[in-house]
Design a protein around this nucleic acid. Structure first.
Length: 418
DNA sequence: TCTGGGGTCCTGGTACTG
DNA sequence: TCTGCAGTACCAGGACCC
Protein backbone atom coordinates (compact mmCIF):
# COMPACT_ATOMS: atom_id res chain seq x y z
CA UNK A 1 0.00 0.00 0.00
CA UNK A 2 2.35 2.68 -1.24
CA UNK A 3 1.63 6.19 -0.02
CA UNK A 4 3.36 7.98 -2.84
CA UNK A 5 1.12 8.78 -5.75
CA UNK A 6 2.38 9.57 -9.24
CA UNK A 7 1.31 8.81 -12.76
CA UNK A 8 3.01 8.46 -16.12
CA UNK A 9 1.72 7.87 -19.60
CA UNK A 10 1.79 4.11 -20.05
CA UNK A 11 2.30 2.90 -23.58
CA UNK A 12 -0.53 0.78 -24.86
CA UNK A 13 0.50 -1.16 -27.91
CA UNK A 14 -1.74 -3.62 -29.71
CA UNK A 15 -1.45 -7.22 -28.52
CA UNK A 16 -0.37 -8.62 -25.16
CA UNK A 17 2.71 -7.01 -23.57
CA UNK A 18 5.97 -8.90 -23.79
CA UNK A 19 6.60 -10.37 -20.34
CA UNK A 20 9.63 -12.41 -21.38
CA UNK A 21 12.28 -12.11 -18.68
CA UNK A 22 9.79 -10.59 -16.21
CA UNK A 23 9.37 -13.23 -13.51
CA UNK A 24 8.72 -10.83 -10.60
CA UNK A 25 5.16 -10.01 -9.56
CA UNK A 26 4.32 -7.35 -6.99
CA UNK A 27 0.80 -7.86 -5.67
CA UNK A 28 -0.75 -5.02 -3.71
CA UNK A 29 -4.27 -5.01 -2.25
CA UNK A 30 -6.37 -1.97 -3.16
CA UNK A 31 -7.18 0.16 -0.08
CA UNK A 32 -6.69 -3.02 1.93
CA UNK A 33 -7.82 -1.96 5.41
CA UNK A 34 -10.85 -0.15 4.03
CA UNK A 35 -11.79 -3.04 1.72
CA UNK A 36 -11.37 -5.55 4.56
CA UNK A 37 -13.49 -3.45 6.92
CA UNK A 38 -16.26 -3.17 4.34
CA UNK A 39 -16.58 -6.96 4.11
CA UNK A 40 -18.66 -6.79 7.29
CA UNK A 41 -20.35 -3.52 6.25
CA UNK A 42 -21.49 -4.12 2.64
CA UNK A 43 -24.08 -1.38 3.13
CA UNK A 44 -21.21 1.16 3.01
CA UNK A 45 -19.90 0.09 -0.39
CA UNK A 46 -19.66 3.02 -2.79
CA UNK A 47 -19.54 5.53 0.08
CA UNK A 48 -16.61 7.55 1.45
CA UNK A 49 -15.27 5.56 4.39
CA UNK A 50 -12.21 6.35 6.51
CA UNK A 51 -10.44 3.79 8.67
CA UNK A 52 -8.87 5.46 11.68
CA UNK A 53 -8.99 6.02 15.40
CA UNK A 54 -10.04 8.92 17.55
CA UNK A 55 -8.05 11.65 19.26
CA UNK A 56 -4.55 12.35 17.94
CA UNK A 57 -4.51 9.61 15.34
CA UNK A 58 -4.04 9.43 11.59
CA UNK A 59 -5.88 7.81 8.69
CA UNK A 60 -5.00 4.13 8.30
CA UNK A 61 -6.85 3.76 5.01
CA UNK A 62 -9.73 5.22 3.05
CA UNK A 63 -12.02 4.06 0.28
CA UNK A 64 -11.45 5.54 -3.17
CA UNK A 65 -14.68 7.53 -2.67
CA UNK A 66 -13.05 9.26 0.32
CA UNK A 67 -9.76 9.68 -1.53
CA UNK A 68 -11.64 11.66 -4.16
CA UNK A 69 -12.03 14.36 -1.47
CA UNK A 70 -8.27 14.44 -0.86
CA UNK A 71 -8.15 12.02 2.07
CA UNK A 72 -4.93 9.99 2.10
CA UNK A 73 -3.42 7.44 4.45
CA UNK A 74 -1.22 8.85 7.24
CA UNK A 75 -3.16 12.11 7.16
CA UNK A 76 -4.26 13.44 10.59
CA UNK A 77 -7.82 12.35 11.31
CA UNK A 78 -8.85 15.90 12.16
CA UNK A 79 -7.78 17.03 8.68
CA UNK A 80 -9.48 14.05 7.02
CA UNK A 81 -12.75 14.87 8.78
CA UNK A 82 -12.53 18.44 7.57
CA UNK A 83 -11.91 17.37 3.96
CA UNK A 84 -14.69 14.80 3.97
CA UNK A 85 -17.10 15.56 6.83
CA UNK A 86 -19.77 13.16 5.58
CA UNK A 87 -17.41 10.16 5.50
CA UNK A 88 -18.19 7.19 7.74
CA UNK A 89 -15.31 6.59 10.16
CA UNK A 90 -14.61 2.99 11.18
CA UNK A 91 -12.06 2.05 13.87
CA UNK A 92 -9.35 -0.40 12.71
CA UNK A 93 -9.80 -4.13 13.30
CA UNK A 94 -6.22 -5.41 13.22
CA UNK A 95 -7.11 -9.00 14.07
CA UNK A 96 -9.36 -9.21 11.08
CA UNK A 97 -6.73 -7.68 8.79
CA UNK A 98 -4.14 -10.19 10.01
CA UNK A 99 -6.50 -13.11 9.38
CA UNK A 100 -7.31 -11.96 5.84
CA UNK A 101 -3.62 -11.32 5.19
CA UNK A 102 -2.75 -14.86 6.32
CA UNK A 103 -5.32 -16.25 3.89
CA UNK A 104 -3.98 -14.11 1.04
CA UNK A 105 -0.38 -15.16 1.69
CA UNK A 106 -1.52 -18.79 1.74
CA UNK A 107 -3.11 -18.23 -1.67
CA UNK A 108 0.13 -16.75 -3.00
CA UNK A 109 1.94 -19.88 -1.82
CA UNK A 110 -0.23 -22.03 -4.07
CA UNK A 111 1.30 -20.25 -7.09
CA UNK A 112 4.95 -20.28 -6.05
CA UNK A 113 7.01 -21.01 -2.97
CA UNK A 114 9.05 -17.86 -3.67
CA UNK A 115 6.87 -15.35 -1.81
CA UNK A 116 8.25 -12.35 0.08
CA UNK A 117 5.60 -10.58 2.18
CA UNK A 118 6.33 -6.86 2.50
CA UNK A 119 3.47 -6.02 4.80
CA UNK A 120 -0.04 -7.31 5.54
CA UNK A 121 -1.32 -6.32 2.12
CA UNK A 122 1.49 -6.75 -0.38
CA UNK A 123 4.09 -9.26 -1.46
CA UNK A 124 6.62 -10.06 -4.14
CA UNK A 125 6.24 -13.35 -6.00
CA UNK A 126 8.96 -14.89 -8.16
CA UNK A 127 7.01 -17.06 -10.61
CA UNK A 128 9.97 -18.36 -12.66
CA UNK A 129 9.24 -21.87 -11.47
CA UNK A 130 5.51 -21.69 -12.20
CA UNK A 131 5.58 -20.65 -15.85
CA UNK A 132 5.50 -24.18 -17.27
CA UNK A 133 2.53 -25.09 -15.03
CA UNK A 134 0.48 -21.89 -15.18
CA UNK A 135 1.59 -19.87 -18.22
CA UNK A 136 3.54 -16.64 -18.68
CA UNK A 137 3.96 -14.20 -15.74
CA UNK A 138 1.26 -11.76 -16.86
CA UNK A 139 -1.22 -14.62 -17.09
CA UNK A 140 -0.25 -15.81 -13.62
CA UNK A 141 -0.74 -12.26 -12.37
CA UNK A 142 -4.25 -12.22 -13.75
CA UNK A 143 -5.06 -15.60 -12.16
CA UNK A 144 -3.77 -14.28 -8.82
CA UNK A 145 -6.05 -11.26 -9.11
CA UNK A 146 -9.08 -13.37 -9.97
CA UNK A 147 -8.38 -15.84 -7.16
CA UNK A 148 -8.00 -13.15 -4.49
CA UNK A 149 -11.20 -11.46 -5.67
CA UNK A 150 -13.11 -14.79 -5.60
CA UNK A 151 -11.79 -15.97 -2.25
CA UNK A 152 -11.58 -12.73 -0.28
CA UNK A 153 -13.97 -10.40 -2.06
CA UNK A 154 -11.35 -7.65 -2.39
CA UNK A 155 -9.43 -6.40 -5.40
CA UNK A 156 -5.71 -6.09 -5.89
CA UNK A 157 -3.28 -4.68 -8.43
CA UNK A 158 -0.31 -6.48 -9.91
CA UNK A 159 2.95 -5.24 -11.38
CA UNK A 160 4.97 -7.57 -13.62
CA UNK A 161 8.62 -6.78 -14.32
CA UNK A 162 12.18 -8.03 -14.41
CA UNK A 163 13.05 -6.64 -10.96
CA UNK A 164 11.34 -6.07 -7.62
CA UNK A 165 11.70 -2.31 -7.77
CA UNK A 166 10.10 -1.98 -11.21
CA UNK A 167 7.35 -4.49 -10.37
CA UNK A 168 6.44 -2.39 -7.35
CA UNK A 169 6.29 0.79 -9.42
CA UNK A 170 4.12 -1.02 -11.96
CA UNK A 171 1.57 -2.21 -9.41
CA UNK A 172 1.27 1.34 -8.11
CA UNK A 173 0.55 2.61 -11.61
CA UNK A 174 -1.95 -0.18 -12.21
CA UNK A 175 -4.12 0.85 -9.26
CA UNK A 176 -6.91 0.36 -8.61
CA UNK A 177 -7.84 -3.15 -9.72
CA UNK A 178 -5.37 -3.42 -12.61
CA UNK A 179 -2.33 -5.19 -13.97
CA UNK A 180 0.67 -3.59 -15.66
CA UNK A 181 3.59 -5.30 -17.38
CA UNK A 182 6.85 -3.39 -17.88
CA UNK A 183 8.67 -5.32 -20.63
CA UNK A 184 12.29 -6.07 -19.85
CA UNK A 185 13.55 -4.11 -22.88
CA UNK A 186 11.50 -1.04 -21.95
CA UNK A 187 12.56 -0.83 -18.31
CA UNK A 188 14.98 2.08 -18.69
CA UNK A 189 12.61 4.11 -20.89
CA UNK A 190 9.83 3.46 -18.37
CA UNK A 191 11.97 4.56 -15.43
CA UNK A 192 13.47 7.66 -16.99
CA UNK A 193 10.11 9.39 -17.46
CA UNK A 194 9.28 9.08 -13.73
CA UNK A 195 9.84 11.84 -11.14
CA UNK A 196 12.73 11.21 -8.71
CA UNK A 197 10.20 10.83 -5.89
CA UNK A 198 9.00 7.61 -7.49
CA UNK A 199 12.25 5.87 -6.58
CA UNK A 200 12.23 3.52 -3.62
CA UNK A 201 14.10 5.27 -0.83
CA UNK A 202 13.48 8.82 -2.02
CA UNK A 203 11.16 10.42 0.50
CA UNK A 204 10.23 14.03 1.04
CA UNK A 205 13.64 15.17 2.34
CA UNK A 206 15.72 13.44 -0.32
CA UNK A 207 13.36 14.64 -3.04
CA UNK A 208 13.83 18.26 -1.88
CA UNK A 209 17.57 17.71 -1.80
CA UNK A 210 17.57 16.35 -5.36
CA UNK A 211 15.37 19.20 -6.57
CA UNK A 212 17.86 21.69 -5.14
CA UNK A 213 20.50 19.96 -7.27
CA UNK A 214 18.26 20.42 -10.30
CA UNK A 215 17.40 16.72 -10.52
CA UNK A 216 13.69 16.20 -11.11
CA UNK A 217 13.29 13.12 -13.30
CA UNK A 218 14.84 9.67 -12.93
CA UNK A 219 16.60 10.35 -16.23
CA UNK A 220 18.41 13.28 -14.54
CA UNK A 221 19.56 10.95 -11.77
CA UNK A 222 20.75 8.36 -14.25
CA UNK A 223 22.90 10.89 -16.08
CA UNK A 224 24.46 12.34 -12.93
CA UNK A 225 27.87 10.88 -12.01
CA UNK A 226 27.48 8.42 -9.16
CA UNK A 227 30.20 10.27 -7.21
CA UNK A 228 28.07 13.43 -7.26
CA UNK A 229 25.08 11.55 -5.87
CA UNK A 230 27.27 9.93 -3.22
CA UNK A 231 28.63 13.32 -2.11
CA UNK A 232 25.08 14.65 -1.83
CA UNK A 233 23.34 11.66 -0.22
CA UNK A 234 26.03 9.41 1.21
CA UNK A 235 27.85 6.42 -0.27
CA UNK A 236 25.11 3.83 0.04
CA UNK A 237 22.13 5.98 -0.97
CA UNK A 238 23.98 7.57 -3.89
CA UNK A 239 25.05 4.23 -5.31
CA UNK A 240 21.60 2.66 -4.83
CA UNK A 241 19.77 5.53 -6.48
CA UNK A 242 22.09 5.51 -9.46
CA UNK A 243 21.65 1.75 -9.89
CA UNK A 244 17.87 1.94 -9.60
CA UNK A 245 17.75 4.78 -12.12
CA UNK A 246 19.29 2.38 -14.64
CA UNK A 247 16.97 -0.46 -13.64
CA UNK A 248 19.72 -2.36 -11.82
CA UNK A 249 18.17 -4.13 -8.82
CA UNK A 250 19.72 -7.54 -8.18
CA UNK A 251 17.78 -8.22 -4.95
CA UNK A 252 16.13 -11.65 -5.15
CA UNK A 253 12.70 -12.47 -3.74
CA UNK A 254 13.46 -13.61 -0.18
CA UNK A 255 11.09 -15.93 1.61
CA UNK A 256 12.26 -15.35 5.17
CA UNK A 257 13.27 -12.05 6.65
CA UNK A 258 14.76 -11.91 10.13
CA UNK A 259 13.22 -9.53 12.61
CA UNK A 260 15.79 -7.03 13.89
CA UNK A 261 13.76 -5.41 16.64
CA UNK A 262 10.44 -5.51 18.45
CA UNK A 263 8.91 -2.55 20.18
CA UNK A 264 5.89 -0.49 21.08
CA UNK A 265 5.20 3.19 21.42
CA UNK A 266 2.19 5.18 22.40
CA UNK A 267 1.11 8.76 21.95
CA UNK A 268 -0.56 10.19 25.04
CA UNK A 269 -4.02 11.59 24.53
CA UNK A 270 -2.56 14.85 25.85
CA UNK A 271 1.00 15.97 26.62
CA UNK A 272 2.38 14.72 29.93
CA UNK A 273 5.02 16.23 32.24
CA UNK A 274 4.71 13.93 35.26
CA UNK A 275 7.62 11.43 35.41
CA UNK A 276 5.47 8.99 37.39
CA UNK A 277 2.99 8.82 34.52
CA UNK A 278 5.81 8.26 32.04
CA UNK A 279 7.29 5.49 34.23
CA UNK A 280 3.91 3.78 34.28
CA UNK A 281 3.60 4.02 30.51
CA UNK A 282 7.12 2.61 30.14
CA UNK A 283 5.99 -0.34 32.25
CA UNK A 284 3.01 -0.97 29.99
CA UNK A 285 5.14 -0.70 26.84
CA UNK A 286 7.91 -2.88 28.30
CA UNK A 287 5.32 -5.49 29.19
CA UNK A 288 3.87 -5.42 25.69
CA UNK A 289 7.30 -5.55 24.03
CA UNK A 290 8.53 -8.43 26.21
CA UNK A 291 5.34 -10.43 25.67
CA UNK A 292 5.66 -10.05 21.90
CA UNK A 293 9.31 -11.07 22.01
CA UNK A 294 8.49 -14.18 24.06
CA UNK A 295 5.65 -15.09 21.77
CA UNK A 296 8.06 -14.83 18.81
CA UNK A 297 10.62 -16.93 20.70
CA UNK A 298 13.11 -14.05 20.59
CA UNK A 299 15.15 -12.16 23.13
CA UNK A 300 17.16 -8.97 22.71
CA UNK A 301 20.37 -7.47 24.02
CA UNK A 302 19.75 -3.75 23.57
CA UNK A 303 16.88 -1.79 25.11
CA UNK A 304 16.11 1.57 23.56
CA UNK A 305 13.59 4.24 24.42
CA UNK A 306 12.12 7.00 22.31
CA UNK A 307 10.76 10.25 23.74
CA UNK A 308 8.90 12.73 21.59
CA UNK A 309 8.32 16.16 23.06
CA UNK A 310 5.36 18.48 22.55
CA UNK A 311 7.22 20.34 19.78
CA UNK A 312 7.63 17.00 17.96
CA UNK A 313 11.40 16.80 18.44
CA UNK A 314 12.39 13.25 19.26
CA UNK A 315 15.30 11.76 21.16
CA UNK A 316 16.33 8.12 21.50
CA UNK A 317 18.53 6.50 24.11
CA UNK A 318 19.82 2.94 24.16
CA UNK A 319 21.63 0.60 26.50
CA UNK A 320 23.19 -2.72 25.62
CA UNK A 321 22.91 -5.33 28.37
CA UNK A 322 25.43 -8.00 29.32
CA UNK A 323 23.17 -10.73 27.99
CA UNK A 324 19.93 -11.26 26.09
CA UNK A 325 16.61 -10.82 27.83
CA UNK A 326 12.89 -11.22 27.28
CA UNK A 327 11.97 -10.37 30.89
CA UNK A 328 9.46 -7.52 31.21
CA UNK A 329 10.94 -6.30 34.48
CA UNK A 330 14.49 -6.10 33.15
CA UNK A 331 13.38 -4.21 30.05
CA UNK A 332 11.30 -1.82 32.15
CA UNK A 333 14.14 -1.17 34.62
CA UNK A 334 16.49 -0.34 31.74
CA UNK A 335 13.89 1.88 30.06
CA UNK A 336 13.31 3.83 33.28
CA UNK A 337 17.07 4.19 33.80
CA UNK A 338 17.45 5.60 30.28
CA UNK A 339 14.52 7.95 30.76
CA UNK A 340 15.71 9.23 34.15
CA UNK A 341 19.19 9.79 32.72
CA UNK A 342 17.66 12.41 30.38
CA UNK A 343 17.14 14.55 33.48
CA UNK A 344 13.94 16.14 32.20
CA UNK A 345 12.35 18.74 34.47
CA UNK A 346 8.60 18.93 33.85
CA UNK A 347 9.05 18.86 30.08
CA UNK A 348 5.87 18.21 28.11
CA UNK A 349 6.05 14.78 26.48
CA UNK A 350 3.84 13.62 23.66
CA UNK A 351 4.98 10.04 23.09
CA UNK A 352 7.19 7.40 24.65
CA UNK A 353 8.36 4.11 23.16
CA UNK A 354 10.30 1.04 24.18
CA UNK A 355 12.17 -1.20 21.75
CA UNK A 356 14.16 -4.40 22.10
CA UNK A 357 16.99 -4.71 19.56
CA UNK A 358 19.76 -7.13 18.72
CA UNK A 359 17.27 -9.99 18.61
CA UNK A 360 18.25 -13.63 18.64
CA UNK A 361 16.20 -16.81 19.10
CA UNK A 362 15.72 -17.40 22.82
CA UNK A 363 16.50 -21.08 22.34
CA UNK A 364 19.99 -20.24 21.09
CA UNK A 365 20.96 -17.56 23.64
CA UNK A 366 22.16 -18.21 27.20
CA UNK A 367 19.46 -16.17 28.92
CA UNK A 368 19.34 -18.27 32.05
CA UNK A 369 23.06 -17.95 32.60
CA UNK A 370 22.73 -14.21 33.11
CA UNK A 371 19.93 -14.39 35.62
CA UNK A 372 20.15 -14.78 39.36
CA UNK A 373 17.49 -16.56 41.42
CA UNK A 374 15.42 -13.41 41.78
CA UNK A 375 15.45 -12.68 38.04
CA UNK A 376 14.60 -16.27 37.27
CA UNK A 377 11.53 -15.73 39.42
CA UNK A 378 10.45 -12.77 37.30
CA UNK A 379 11.01 -14.83 34.17
CA UNK A 380 8.76 -17.56 35.52
CA UNK A 381 6.18 -14.91 36.41
CA UNK A 382 6.27 -13.64 32.82
CA UNK A 383 5.68 -17.16 31.56
CA UNK A 384 2.68 -17.51 33.88
CA UNK A 385 1.26 -14.20 32.58
CA UNK A 386 1.72 -15.45 29.01
CA UNK A 387 -0.21 -18.62 29.83
CA UNK A 388 -3.01 -16.66 31.49
CA UNK A 389 -3.20 -14.23 28.58
CA UNK A 390 -3.40 -17.10 26.12
CA UNK A 391 -6.27 -18.59 28.10
CA UNK A 392 -8.24 -15.54 29.26
CA UNK A 393 -7.22 -12.89 26.75
CA UNK A 394 -4.51 -10.26 26.49
CA UNK A 395 -4.42 -7.93 29.48
CA UNK A 396 -6.22 -10.35 31.81
CA UNK A 397 -3.14 -10.29 34.05
CA UNK A 398 -0.97 -7.21 34.44
CA UNK A 399 1.24 -5.44 36.95
CA UNK A 400 -0.63 -4.03 39.93
CA UNK A 401 0.66 -0.54 39.13
CA UNK A 402 -1.24 -0.65 35.86
CA UNK A 403 -4.55 -1.58 37.52
CA UNK A 404 -7.21 1.15 37.66
CA UNK A 405 -7.44 2.68 41.10
CA UNK A 406 -11.08 1.66 41.50
CA UNK A 407 -10.00 -1.97 41.12
CA UNK A 408 -12.51 -2.57 38.35
CA UNK A 409 -9.90 -4.22 36.19
CA UNK A 410 -11.39 -2.68 33.10
CA UNK A 411 -8.88 -1.18 30.74
CA UNK A 412 -8.80 -0.77 27.02
CA UNK A 413 -5.11 -0.84 26.39
CA UNK A 414 -4.92 2.92 25.95
CA UNK A 415 -2.82 5.11 28.21
CA UNK A 416 -4.92 5.85 31.26
CA UNK A 417 -4.74 9.57 30.79
CA UNK A 418 -7.85 10.77 29.13
C1' DT B 1 -2.74 22.57 10.91
C1' DC B 2 -1.34 18.55 12.46
C1' DT B 3 1.56 15.10 12.34
C1' DG B 4 0.21 6.86 14.63
C1' DG B 5 2.59 2.77 15.16
C1' DG B 6 5.35 -0.80 13.48
C1' DG B 7 9.62 -1.31 11.56
C1' DT B 8 14.64 -1.01 8.64
C1' DC B 9 18.76 1.08 7.19
C1' DC B 10 22.39 4.46 7.02
C1' DT B 11 25.59 7.90 8.79
C1' DG B 12 28.65 10.14 11.81
C1' DG B 13 30.60 10.49 16.28
C1' DT B 14 32.73 8.37 20.22
C1' DA B 15 34.60 4.77 23.11
C1' DC B 16 36.96 0.68 23.47
C1' DT B 17 40.48 -2.73 22.32
C1' DG B 18 44.51 -5.00 20.49
C1' DT C 1 54.80 2.43 29.90
C1' DC C 2 53.16 5.51 26.55
C1' DT C 3 51.45 6.73 22.02
C1' DG C 4 49.34 6.24 17.63
C1' DC C 5 46.54 3.63 14.69
C1' DA C 6 42.98 0.75 12.88
C1' DG C 7 39.06 -2.01 13.49
C1' DT C 8 34.91 -2.72 15.92
C1' DA C 9 31.00 -1.82 18.88
C1' DC C 10 27.89 1.21 20.50
C1' DC C 11 24.99 5.24 20.40
C1' DA C 12 22.01 8.86 18.56
C1' DG C 13 19.66 10.88 14.97
C1' DG C 14 17.56 11.06 10.52
C1' DA C 15 15.13 9.32 6.64
C1' DC C 16 12.41 6.09 4.80
C1' DC C 17 8.91 2.29 4.25
C1' DC C 18 3.89 0.46 4.89
Amino acid sequence: MSRRQFSVPVRSEPGPPDDTGCPILHVDMDAFYASASLLSRPDLRGQPVIIGGSGRSVVLSATYEARAFGVTSAMPMSQARRLCPHAVVIPPDHRRYAAISDAIMATFATFTDQVEPLSLDEAFLDVSGAVRRLGPPAQIGQIVRDTIADEQGITCSVGVAATKFVAKLASGLAKPDGLLVVPHDETVVFLHQLPVGAIWGVGERTEEHLHRLGLRAVADLAHTPVETLQRALGDAAGRTLHDLAWGRDPRPVERQREEKSIGADETFSYDVDDPAVVHRELLRLSDRTAARARSAGMSGRTVSIKVRFADFTTVTRAKTLRGHTDVSREIHATAVELFDRLGLQRVRIRLVGVRLEGLAPSSGTPIQATLDERDRGWREADRAVDRASARFGAGSVRPASLMPEDGSGSQDGQPDLS
